[in-house]
Design a protein around this nucleic acid. Structure first.
Lengths: 131, 131
DNA sequence: CGTATATGTGCACACATATGCACATAAGTC
DNA sequence: GACTTATGTGCATATGTGTGCACATATACG
């Protein structure tokens, strides 16, 4: 995007200010760790399970898995329910999809408004092609 | 999602295995830091700019901003171009939107397949409502 | 009631990351 | 060529994070 003859529109301003509201760091950080991704895969594969079942097969200690599950729950990615001495965990698929959908909807104007170096040099741009 | 009478379908398996391929940690991590988000906001607001211009107004040192820009470029979020002694940076909006779109498309089946504790207790589920 | 199992937490430690300062390199200006 | 400006990097440091062990708590079982 060029900044000399292309005035910054209100859409740019709105997009800029919407970033911080939609980029939930707690949600995104929860999806960055490979162990937590393994946990999500496991829950998807075997369904609702307790901590020990989820930890079975994974290389980390069970207490570590417990901490990761707490972190995923803080992010809204998993939900827990007490069942006797066990604690069952499950994914909150609708919430995850809703969250990512909101992110995409917010960032979507970037596809048009933020084309890299649009109209910056002699490359073929819409303007140069028209003239 | 229940795991006793509801057999795990092939869709669950496919969704589980697709997770690691689409959850690009380098891309997601780049969006987690508040300083990097500020940088993105700045580039959106003022368009293509060099490092010093981007760093102006931000509290961090200019070298720190330089490092963050390198990290954002590694993630594909920004693109750089040399211009004399300056280095110009710009957002790659289309790539960002494409990346998030791919994530959403992959996770979208979760909205149906991973409803939390579906059919687990006496709550009103589709099955109990039908009987 | 004593025992076994499941879960979460305090603590220590290794590693990653963000930050700032000093400096080297590259490129424009006089 | 000397000087100035722009950028990136080496180094040190503070903070955050993932990990494992030991242990406390809660609950089921006999």
């Amino acid at each position: 995007m060029k900044n000399d003859n292309h005035p910054l529109t209100e859409e740019h301003k709105a997009l800029s200010e919407a970033l911080i509201g939609v980029l939930d760091t707690r949600f995104l950080k929860a999806l960055c760790d490979p162990t937590r991704i393994e946990i999500l895969k496991k829950i998807i594969s075997i369904g609702v399970s307790d901590v020990s079942t989820i930890a079975r097969g994974l290389s980390q200690d069970r207490s570590v898995i417990s901490r990761h599950l707490a972190q995923l729950e803080q992010a809204g990615i998993t939900v827990s329910r007490k069942d006797g001495r066990r604690v069952l965990y499950d994914l909150d698929g609708p919430y995850i999809v809703e969250k990512v959908t909101k992110i995409l909807n917010t960032l979507h104007p970037m596809a048009d408004l933020c084309r890299p170096f649009e109209g910056w040099d002699g490359a073929a741009t819409l303007e140069s092609q028209r003239s």
